[in-house]
Amino acid sequence: MSACAARLVLSFVVALATVTFLPLIDTNTWWIRYLDFPRVQIFFCLLILTAIAIILRSQISKVGTIVVGIGLLALGHQAFKLYPFSSLSANAAESFDTCSTGSSFTLLIANVRKRNEDAAAFLNVVEAVNPDLLLILETDNWWDRSLQSLDDRFPEKVQFIPEGHGAFGMHVFSRLPLINPEFQFLFDGYTPMAVMGVKLRSGAVVQFVGVHPHPPLAWSQPTTLRDASLLQAALLAGSSPSATIVAGAFNSVPWEPVTRRAARIGRLLDPRIGRGIMPTFRVDSSLISWPLDQILFQEEFGLLEFGVLPAFGSDHYPVTASLCHAPGRDGLAAAPEANPGDIAEAEDSIEEAKVVGATNDGE
Rank of each mutant, 00 (worst) to 15 (best):
L46W: 05
F105E: 02
F187C: 03
P23Q: 04
H214D: 13
S239E: 11
T106A: 04
W142N: 08
A249V: 03
G166L: 07
S285I: 00
H165S: 11
Y317I: 02
A79T: 10
W30M: 00
V308K: 08
D97N: 14
E300N: 13
F297N: 01
A247T: 03
S61M: 08
L16F: 12
V112E: 07
H77L: 13
L46T: 01
F43V: 10
L230E: 00
K114S: 12
E351M: 05
D284W: 06
T244M: 05
G331L: 15
S252R: 04
V172S: 08
N111H: 08
F96I: 01
H325Q: 05
A3L: 10
R7M: 14
G71Y: 12
F160K: 12
Y317W: 08
D270Q: 12
P257N: 07
L135S: 02
F185T: 11
C45E: 01
R145N: 06
M278Y: 03
L225Q: 05
R201T: 13
N28R: 14
F312H: 09
S322F: 01
R113P: 02
A233N: 07
W30I: 06
S322L: 04
S349A: 12
S239W: 06
I245N: 00
G189M: 10
A15N: 09
E256N: 10
L123W: 00
L107R: 00
P23H: 07
D97T: 12
P162T: 13
W255P: 03
A311D: 07
F43K: 03
H325K: 10
I136N: 04
L75E: 04
A321W: 00
I136V: 11
V125M: 13
